[in-house]
């Protein structure tokens, strides 16, 4: 293809996006578009899968049958999200095996929030309320992103996430209205998850390397700082409603901006966790790699069995 032809294709492609047309798997796309989408979509899929771990940590110890069943359903939803996000990523010409390999070798990232430990039951509430809450803020705009399979997957993901968020908030509400001990559990969980949840919305705009291009492709609609502000403004009244205190002494309503001012985020902690030095990075990777390696003989058996069945079928035909 000549340089001119390529330029032409690119111009047409950008025009399609500008017209809000969806790009589909078989359409021509610039290599960078493909790579960027593989990176972001697989990172999203990995986050769903790794994100199962901190919550599955409490399945066997959930305090009531109702909570146990709801938690199982929630973690199962996340596995489901992982499944169709991997499938959507595969439409860009990469296999699930390759994607797993990127996760297991550390080449691909997942959301850093899942490197924090779930130490009490209240963390199930805090994760649903705050982590899923922040995730929704990130993800709702993606329902209109330019890549068709991703946009469609996100419609379903967002519906389920918003249910999870309400469920998490309901856990917190129950604790906050419970005994003193339960209220302490809730406040302690909020104290530990608040700042990591703010960090989850990504580095400040000045340090975010992918923003500009991603905005153009509608992979991103608002900057990290705008999303963070939206999350804070939405969450503070929810905390107040159930009598919990946001652990930020600098948090203050700003009449002029019509938003909350908030304190300094510890970005050093954020980058350390991204680099692999969070409290649970090693455990999470060990669990994922361990499940994959221990499961190899099972996957091999399934393949071998399917081949045998196929052979038998062919013999019957002959």
């Amino acid at each position: 293809m000549s340089k001119e032809q390529l330029k032409n294709l690119e111009t047409q492609f950008e025009a399609r996006i500008a017209r809000d047309e969806k790009i589909e798997p078989k359409d021509w796309m610039p290599e960078k578009y493909r790579k960027t989408h593989i990176r972001q979509m697989s990172q999203h899929a990995h986050s769903e899968i790794v994100g199962m771990l901190p919550e599955s940590n409490w399945i066997t110890r959930a305090p009531s049958l109702r909570r146990k069943v709801a938690l199982l359903a929630k973690v199962q939803d996340e596995a489901g999200h992982g499944l169709y996000l991997y499938s959507a990523t595969e439409t860009l010409g990469i296999s699930r095996e390759e994607l797993y390999n990127q996760l297991h070798t550390g080449a691909a990232k997942y959301s850093s929030i899942f490197n924090y430990p779930t130490v009490t039951w209240a963390d199930m509430g805090a994760i649903g309320w705050l982590v899923d809450g922040a995730a929704i803020i990130n993800q709702v705009p993606l329902c209109n992103t330019s890549y068709g399979p991703y946009a469609r997957a996100m419609v379903r993901v967002c519906k389920e996430e918003s249910f999870h968020q309400r469920q998490g908030y309901e856990i917190m509400m129950k604790l906050a209205n419970g005994t003193m001990e339960q209220k302490d559990l809730a406040q302690d969980a909020l104290n530990r998850w608040w700042w990591p949840s703010l960090m989850m919305l990504g580095p400040t705009d000045a340090e975010s390397i992918h923003t500009e291009q991603s905005m153009k492709w509608k992979l991103k609609r608002k900057s990290n700082d705008d999303l963070r502000q939206q999350f804070i403004d939405q969450t503070v009244p929810q905390a107040e409603l159930i009598g919990l205190t946001i652990p930020d002494p600098d948090l203050k309503w700003n009449d002029e901006r019509g938003s909350y001012d908030y304190g300094e985020i510890d970005w050093e902690e954020f980058w350390q966790v991204v680099k692999g030095n969070g409290p649970c990075n090693r455990e999470r990777m060990k669990a994922r790699v361990g499940a994959w390696e221990e499961g190899e003989w099972v996957r091999d058996a399934a393949m071998a069995h399917a081949e045998k069945k196929q052979e038998r079928k062919q013999k019957q035909v002959v």
Binding site: M52, I59, A73, Q76, L83
Partner: peptide
Amino acid sequence: IGELCGHGPSLETDIACTNISL
């Protein structure tokens, strides 16, 4: 079976086992 959630040999079996537990 609930103990296995998140640790299955594949995503599909993980989902199925969680479903059985549920």
